Measured scan of single mutants.
Amino acid sequence: EPLWIRPDAPSRCTWQLGRPASESPHHHTAPAKSPKILPDILKKIGDTPMVRINKIGKKFGLKCELLAKCEFFNAGGSVKDRISLRMIEDAERDGTLKPGDTIIEPTSGNTGIGLALAAAVRGYRCIIVMPEKMSSEKVDVLRALGAEIVRTPTNARFDSPESHVGVAWRLKNEIPNSHILDQYRNASNPLAHYDTTADEILQQCDGKLDMLVASVGTGGTITGIARKLKEKCPGCRIIGVDPEGSILAEPEELNQTEQTTYEVEGIGYDFIPTVLDRTVVDKWFKSNDEEAFTFARMLIAQEGLLCGGSAGSTVAVAVKAAQELQEGQRCVVILPDSVRNYMTKFLSDRWMLQKGFLKEEDLTEKKPWWWHLRVQELGLSAPLTVLPTITCGHTIEILREKGFDQAPVVDEAGVILGMVTLGNMLSSLLAGKVQPSDQVGKVIYKQFKQIRLTDTLGRLSHILEMDHFALVVHEQIQYHSTGKSSQRQMVFGVVTAIDLLNFVAAQERDQK
């Protein structure tokens, strides 16, 4: 057995438009009618409502009807409940999964919650491996369901041993009777949507819809739904939504950006999952974080739909894509998950301010006199920076000697690579993860907040409520011999709460 199987392995699926269902090699399930009293909570997966979006479509000038398939009504709160249950049931049916076995899954959280929910009911041990950027709410729900959680670096490539995929496979090879159901490759993922989600949409719309818009992560949702719609409703256009920084969209030119990270969760990847059939997507749109969270908040405030950030991405694209539809036509959007997962993220004004998705003037509360002053007023001194090749031991000596707790790590040209902190280095040394002679590049981390000289002290204040420091950066445009230009970030300084307090105190003292 291989040590790991690539999540982007070539698909062996034989589905073709027009091929009889009787030739399918898979076990198919028909939607079942729910009894009045459910035998367990797993029976509350599927049969989610279709809700008309009344205000947002009109606000953006849509002539067509805009409908939302509300997947956050599933038992675990997301569309991923469907595939989690289906993968477990299919693994039980073919004898792969037996009582007492362990389920391991690399996930952005929602599939993990679905699997942990099913594992709690069915009696399996469950280990979820997820990147650090995923919300604390997801972690809390997983723990409450009895799952064990392993976190991995957000910026690790999918084929790196440190990625959530790599760590999951390492655990599988170490733990007896453990299984990775593997949402990236498992046919049960798109089949769950082909058999149930798509049929529900067709039934709820009486077979009449002209466009379907869905955000894409593993691709199982859009693949399964689109294949069924292509068979039953061939005139329906399928629109895929991919965040900026991901590479799922086609044509490839759409993916060209210097951005590699994004805040919206559960969609987009740096590889093409095996289950994603991009041939059934008629057109791709890219979405960005700001519009995703703005539209998610709009869905909550104006439509009462308590959905997550990827739902915002989907609707932001839908109001663009559906401009081509006329009166009497219908566009369906998939709202994948609930706001429950993001209470401390985009639902929080403070978080939105820190990330730059909300401006101070958007909030009406009274601010102190210094709130709208610029960061450049602080008069920061030149920063202490270190090269990635310097040793951890030497870096600790320098920081202690100069009285700093942290320093930016830059390359020879001064471009920011990340940050090192005294606390992080000492804990890594004590844990045996690094040696004093190791290069400081081994303990770089990139989960820090950046701020510009033109940003306000109010925004800085919000950042420092949650973080010990902020890195002050400025952009530099560099022209190359080819005539092309590129933008790079340079370090201007490091600012802490002490710097802000000293500035405010000094100004008030001078005024007296």
Rank of each mutant, 00 (worst) to 15 (best):
A470G: 08
E258G: 12
W284Y: 01
L399M: 15
E291A: 15
A296M: 06
S428D: 15
E258N: 13
L373F: 10
E244V: 10
T344Y: 06
P368C: 06
K449S: 08
L426Y: 15
L387T: 14
L399D: 01
E327W: 01
N341A: 01
L426P: 01
A301M: 14
S428G: 15
I398Q: 06
S348V: 12
A301Y: 13
A413W: 07
E377T: 01
T496W: 01
D349L: 11
R330D: 13
G268V: 01
N288I: 12
L373V: 12
V280P: 09
P243L: 03
Q489D: 01
S481T: 15
K442A: 10
V473Y: 12
S437L: 13
T257I: 08
R350A: 13
T279M: 11
V495M: 14
L378D: 01
I444P: 15
Q507R: 12
G393F: 12
V440P: 08
T260V: 10
E397H: 15
Q447M: 10
I463G: 11
K355L: 12
G356F: 01
T260R: 01
T389Y: 10
P368S: 10
E508F: 12
G268R: 01
G312C: 14
V264D: 01
T344D: 06
G432V: 10
D362M: 08
G418N: 07
W370F: 12
V440C: 12
W284S: 03
L399G: 01
I451F: 12
K484R: 01
R488T: 08
L422M: 15
M419R: 08
L353K: 15
V281M: 15
T456A: 12
A316K: 11
W284L: 01
G483H: 11
T456F: 12
Q487H: 14
K402E: 15
V434A: 15
L453S: 05
M352W: 04
K433P: 06
A296W: 01
T456S: 08
K512L: 11
V409K: 04
R509C: 11
R459I: 15
T454F: 09
R340H: 05
R488C: 05
A321Y: 08
T421A: 13
T344V: 01
D349M: 01
E412P: 14
L457T: 01
T454A: 01
R278Q: 05
A321M: 11
T257G: 09
V264A: 07
P436E: 11
G418D: 06
E291S: 14
A318S: 13
V410H: 11
K367I: 11
L417D: 09
D270A: 01
V410M: 11
S310L: 04
L335D: 04
L358I: 01
M466Y: 14
Q447S: 08
W284A: 01
S313A: 10
G308Y: 03
M490Y: 14
A296H: 04
L471G: 15
I444R: 12
Y269M: 01
Q323Y: 10
R278C: 04
I477S: 06
K320F: 09
K446E: 06
A497H: 07
L254I: 01
F448G: 15
A407Y: 09
G432D: 15
G414F: 12
G423V: 13
R459H: 15
K433H: 15
T314I: 14
V440N: 14
S287Y: 05
Q489R: 01
L380F: 01
G268E: 05
Q447R: 11
V333R: 05
M425L: 12
T274D: 01
S437K: 15
D467C: 07
L501S: 04
G309L: 01
K442S: 07
V504Y: 12
T344P: 01
R340C: 04
H372N: 10
S461M: 13
